[in-house]
Design a protein around this nucleic acid. Structure first.
Lengths: 124, 124
DNA sequence: CCTAGTGTTATATTTTACTAGTACACTATA
DNA sequence: TATAGTGTACTAGTAAAATATAACACTAGG
């Protein structure tokens, strides 16, 4: 896994795991790889992995069973709820920032549309 | 001024000054308050102010005249260019994050629209 | 000239976030 | 009950950010 120096590794690990869950590669009830194994796979320290998992456990999205492993919660609504929360967080941040740059609501929407259209042409 | 612990103070100072410029409270050619005055106003150290201003000078958005003060550049296209750059930065970040949460391009646009609509009802 | 006001630079210190190493605690099972 | 596999906690090292303090450099005006 490639890490971006601008943001903490543990945060990127969380994002990675969120992504696995949102794309269904990690399903409710699934067991995660052992923390030491994850640490090896991601070439980071066990504590860095633990830091990420610890926060997700606090969020109620993972459950840890000492001696057994870490598991994705069976509480599916909790997962949906988390996703919505994460989306809202992102939207609030970008809205606040663009609003601070003196863009109107309409300009914010338009700029996002243009960005995505432009991005499509280039990549996909 | 209120600072958010999650992001460096010097960075928030930059954002504050950007905002002042984008909303026209700081116009091209305007003189900024003295660094020591800014430090007092913002209750931070002179070096922290200098760190923010230094980066903005490197960006070509501010000009410093030793013994006189710091001034907003007269190069208006540079300001426009910077604004576009800042907007793009925000859009790229939010797009990447929401895409990672498995939202399609259309869903991303829709969620932003809904967010703004909802926000309008509550506040304005 | 001298002085007050301005930006600039340098150094040391403190604080905090992040990461790492290591030892501890629990579970299953052979 | 021994052992391998698991999560957890404690402690320390590193780097970035912020501060404190001071000295330096330029400008304008008396």
């Amino acid at each position: 896994m490639q890490f971006d120096d601008k943001v903490p590794i543990y945060y990127q690990i969380k994002n990675y795991l969120y992504h696995e869950m949102m794309t269904g590669q990690l399903k409710p009830g699934d067991k995660l790889p052992a923390v030491r194994q994850l640490a090896v796979d991601l070439t980071v320290n066990v504590n860095t992995v633990q830091r990420a998992l610890g926060e997700m456990i606090t969020e109620g999205i993972l459950e840890s069973k000492r001696g057994k492993g870490n598991f994705v919660t069976m509480d599916e609504p909790r997962i949906t709820q988390l996703k919505e929360h994460l989306v809202m967080e992102q939207l609030e941040r970008v809205y606040e920032q663009l609003h601070a740059l003196n863009l109107t609501d309409e300009q914010i929407i338009e700029s996002l549309k243009r960005f995505i259209a432009q991005r499509r042409q280039q990549n996909d």
